[in-house]
Every structure is written in structure tokens, then in C-alpha cells.
Design a protein around this nucleic acid. Sequence first.
DNA 1: AGATGAAATGGAAGGGCTTCCATTATTATA
DNA 2: TATAATAATGGAAGCCCTTCCATTTCATCT
Lengths: 358, 358
Amino acid sequence: MNIYDVAKQAGVGIGTVSRVLNGSAKVKPETRERVQAAINQLDYVPHGAARSLGSGRSHVLGLVVPFFTRPFFIEVLRGVEMAATAHGYEMVLYNVETTTQRDHYLRQLPMRRRVDGLLVVSLFCDESEAERFRKMNLPVVLVDSYNPLLTSLVVDNISGARQAVEYLISLGHRQIGFVNGVKVGSFNFNKADDRMSGYRQALANSDIPYNPEWVSATEWTRAGGREGARQLLLLPQRPTAIFAASDVQALGVMEQAQAQGLRVPQDLCIIGFDNIELAELLNLTTVAQPMHEMGKQAVERLLAEIECPQPPQTVMMDVTLVHRSTTAPLAAPNVSAFSTASVRDGVWATQQNIITEG
Amino acid sequence: MNIYDVAKQAGVGIGTVSRVLNGSAKVKPETRERVQAAINQLDYVPHGAARSLGSGRSHVLGLVVPFFTRPFFIEVLRGVEMAATAHGYEMVLYNVETTTQRDHYLRQLPMRRRVDGLLVVSLFCDESEAERFRKMNLPVVLVDSYNPLLTSLVVDNISGARQAVEYLISLGHRQIGFVNGVKVGSFNFNKADDRMSGYRQALANSDIPYNPEWVSATEWTRAGGREGARQLLLLPQRPTAIFAASDVQALGVMEQAQAQGLRVPQDLCIIGFDNIELAELLNLTTVAQPMHEMGKQAVERLLAEIECPQPPQTVMMDVTLVHRSTTAPLAAPNVSAFSTASVRDGVWATQQNIITEG
DNA sequence: AGATGAAATGGAAGGGCTTCCATTATTATA
DNA sequence: TATAATAATGGAAGCCCTTCCATTTCATCT
């Protein structure tokens, strides 16, 4: 069952069938109908690989993403999936969990020419790799990562962090901790730097001195957040608010606060970063990234680039602070001093509001 | 840059290069080395589409999955991804959110012959579709779904539900509610039936009469769980424990309980189903499905089938009850009557233990 | 009717691999 | 050393499309 069968059935040449399949204009309507009928009758579906080989187009997008099960990536993924499907593209997933894997994919994929374009999420991409993409003529869009040679969609991490901390300051906080994430090898988790900048900017803008003791860098995980919070909260002079570099870490902070008998937000305010689903669930104040939108835009820019080469562009995505219940005006010192009484049951004060929101 | 270039560089014929690429045995070690050297020198990577076309193998697995962002599917996905990668297969994702999409994929994919095999997760697959797969010679494995003509990996939903309810009974509960999920179109969400059977079996085994008032069927979502719980909990004679058909629904139940000032587990015990990450987080007692393992097994069986046709088999995956803190022995009635006092702060008693676990 | 240009069509060539058969090199055996 | 058996190799054919050029058909104009 191939294109010749269809041609015979319809009484036309294979060229005509191909033109019908690809919707090119130069087919007489009547002929088109005849071909279409044959296609339906034979239940014919063109052979993907042959098509790719013939045309040099696969209609497949590659998606290189680290730890795709993490909420942030899932959300981006979803945006990508929707946009890709909408444009008739398939999506193949390359999950990266080690540096070796990263290198492997970034090196082999361009040449295998199986994908029409590559979306690289949150992974650092060096000059030589970018150069190689160009040379291989493989369109690439970076999401949550930056390289001057490639179209990059980045989130305004500096501004996001600044907004978060400024908000805490506006609530009266002066002792503001920061549980940052660590940079990990060639993963582009060095948004850490930017978030740090934002943190310091906000402090500086309000003439609050920077206290390195109130900053820790941990894994981007729940355990990491817990550990980071412990460091800060056991200090003789502890922060009254903590900004965490991710929601997942913020969750760890909440756990640690609870373990130490601190009520949130009365005794400790917390702000996260990302706005993953869990944040809404726990009523966590956080900096929202437009993850879905990023995925979508990334696909659209990539498709544009596939259509015809575009100059590399850097798109800054806006970030917004979502006010929920892990933040509140700084309580008067004497009040916050008491209040370990009701912790008996393991209170997350924040959760009171869950119901009202849904 | 193609196989001819490599052949020339190595001073051999293309057949030999091909043999080296595919690791077939009949190449003199010395020759193999020479070819390998040429490959490295030229940075040659074989063209995927051409390879598929020539061999009829794509080394790509299709994964048809509904709502892939839901935790259950993500976990399965992860198992699939790991196993596929381990065996040198790529994975393309077909997300299904509507019946139309489902039909589209299940009908078109087999013929496009782009994938070597198909994994279908949680989607109902009727006789005619299964028949078509056979006829098209496309290996298919069903995960969390069943069809006699296809290899199916199913979870023992009946036993899982039974275990959950039996456990509640062993704790002294006699008024046990069930927040079930609704069946949705051609999605295979009719595990609902099985979980219902398990529920009733457990009751019957202990001679507890079945009370339809204590059962509700809702969406498989948080909101659904909340709604279902409301129905049950506002009854004049309310259940003292609720079994939910999924963790996500169980979460809704917890929210509703809290909204009504019921402490968990003192006033209301809750058991979920799935054991998604969130369950651990919230210390939810639940029936654990080996999601990861299912993904892995599915891939392995699929690959076996690709290697050589296998008779369809139905594999029943075991399920285990994970005891956490949303369950406790039924309190004496007078005790549970008081206890709306400390709810002021929105208590989820369960969360006390989070720290101890991680 | 004949000429002209445009529109529609047919099909050869080509894309890069695998496969398989024919051929050549190597080894074992007498 | 001759011969048979075996191992290794080369390359034509084939996989199923797309593309493009040559050819045919059609409509229009003189």
C-alpha cells in the first residue's frame, strides 16, 4: 500500500497524488477529489520516514529537557505539546539527567536530522554547541536559558526576585533570608545568580545591608529548602521572612518552619518562585512564571525559524508576584514571641484559605 | 556527508559500513576499527529517516496518553522514558484530551509506520481497533487498560480498593464513604467499576451493609473530591472514614473535611489511591500503584513483541497499601464529638509527620 | 482554425540507508 | 599444493516518498 497504489486507483500519476497530499495548489479540483476518494477508499496514510527522506522535513520537534518530571518542566512541556500539536508537529522527548546525556543529545541530535528543530529547556548551551547548530542548519530555541547566537526565551529572574523581596520589605520586613539554589554543572540552573542579584538589588534600594549569613544555597529540592531554612532559622538573629529560589524549596522552608514551631505567616513569611500547581494548593505567595506561555512561544518561534532562518533574538518573559497567604505584614515583636502553642497539630496556617480559592 | 563518504574514507564498501553501524557480527575486527575511525573522523551520524525507510524500523516508540500532566501519567511516563532510553529507543508523545484525538491517534498512527510500537495508557481500546493493530502488524501494549487481543498491564483495582476498605474496617470503622470517579467517554477511566467492586467486597466480607448514600461519583479532580466529600459529610449520619478513588480526589476530601472543621484522622479517616508524590507530601494513607514499574514493564514487553510477535498476555500488577497519617483507629464517639476547637488555624493533623519522613 | 501562454499532469531521478546475493579472501583439510 | 569450506566484503536493488522538468491539456486571443 503506497503512493503508486493510490495513483493507480485514482487513475493519475504519483506526482499528482503527492501534490494532493501536500496541498499544493496546482491540482484541478476535480482531480483532487478523485485522488482524495482513492485515499479514503484505500485507507492510505503516507509513510512518514519516506516522506522525511524525500523532503528533508520530518515534522518532528525535539525537546531536550532536564528532569522532565519536575513541575516546572511539565508545565513548559504542556505548552510545547499544545502548540506543536496545533501546528501538526510531533514531539519527541529527550530527558536529561546527567551531563553525559546532555552532551550526547546536544551533539548527536543535530546531525541525525530526525527533528526539524530543537527546543532546549533550562540547559546551558555553549558557543561551540551553538555554532554547531548553525553550521548544521538546525533551528534551535532556548527556553529558560541564554545564548547570544540562539533565540532565547528567558524569564526576568532579576526582576522577579526583586519584586518578591521588595514586597517583603513593604510588609515591614528587614531581616529577609534567601534560600537560593546551587548551580549544577552544565545545567542552566545558574538562574541562581540572577535571583541573587534581584535579592540584593531590592535590599540595596531600601538601604538594607546585605547579610551573607541570611543566604544559603541548596539543592533545588524540598530537602534542599529544608536544609537551607534550618541554617537560617537556627541563627541567633533569624530572618522574619524567607525568599526561596523555587516553590519546591519554599515547600521545604515551610516544613522546616513548622518543625521549629514557627507559624506561617505570623512568625515567618515565605515567598517562592515558579508558581507550580502545588503553590496554589498550599497558598504559597510566589513569583509566577508564564510556563505554559513560554512553551507555546518557544514552539512558535521555532516554527518560524524552520520556515525561514531568523536572526537570534532574546525574549524576556514577564514575571508577576502572586499574593497568597504565606506572607503578611510583620507582626509586632512581642506578639511573635509567644505563639508556639497551637503548633501541636502541625499547623500550616496558610491552608485555611485553600477552600476559599478553588 | 553520508555512508558513501564514510566508506570512501575507510576504503571499504558501503555494505561494510552499514554492518559496522548495526553491529552485525561478520566484520573483521581490523576492518571494523578502520570504519569506526572514519566515522569518528567525519563526525558521521546516520540519517534516521533513511535508516527507517531502509530497514522498516524507526527505533521510536509512540506513547498515547490522556492528560499527560496528571501525576499518575507523569510517573508512568517516567518509567517508560527510562526503559526506552535504556534500550536505545526514542519516545514520541501523543497527548489525548478529547475523544476525537484519541480516535485520530489510534487510527492514523499504526499506518504511518513511524513508530515501531505503541504504548496506550489508560485508554479504552475496542475490538476493532485491536484488530486493526494486528492486521497492520503494529505491536501494542496497553497500560492500565485491558483488551483480550492485546498485551495488557492492569492494576489490581479490586484488590486495592478491598485492601483499603478492609484496613478501615480493621481500624473499627463501620461507616465508610466512597468518593469514586466517574467514567468518561472512551477514556478508560472505568477502573471506577473495579474500585467499586473492591469497596463492596470488603464491606460484604465483614457483613457491613452497603449504603448507597455513602457513595458518590465525581470528576477525578480535586474539585471533584471536594464535592463528593461534601455530599457525604453533610449527611445526618456521616461516614467516619472516606476512601477516595484517587489521591487527587482524596486531597479534595481533605480540603472539604477541613472546611467543615473535621480533623483528620481524629474525626475523619481518609485513604486515597495511586500514591502520587503529593500523597507522601501530605502524609496521605493510600493504595500505591507501581507506576514506574508499569512504565518499565510496558516498554520491555513492547520491545519483546517488536522483536518477535508474542501471544497477548494480561499482567496483573500488585498494589500495596501505604500506611500514613490520614488513618487512625476509630475514636470513641464522645471524643470525636468535641474537637472543633483547634481547627482555627486550619489544621491538617497529618502534616505533623512530614518532617520525620523525609 | 491556429497560435500562444498558462495550468495541470506524469514520472524519472534522487534522498540515505539496509539487505542480500554474488564475489573475493582466508582458513582448514587432505 | 590443491581443494573445499567458511568468513568477509562490495554494491545493486529496493524502501516510499518529494521534486522538478518535460509534456500534455486547456483557455484565450487573433
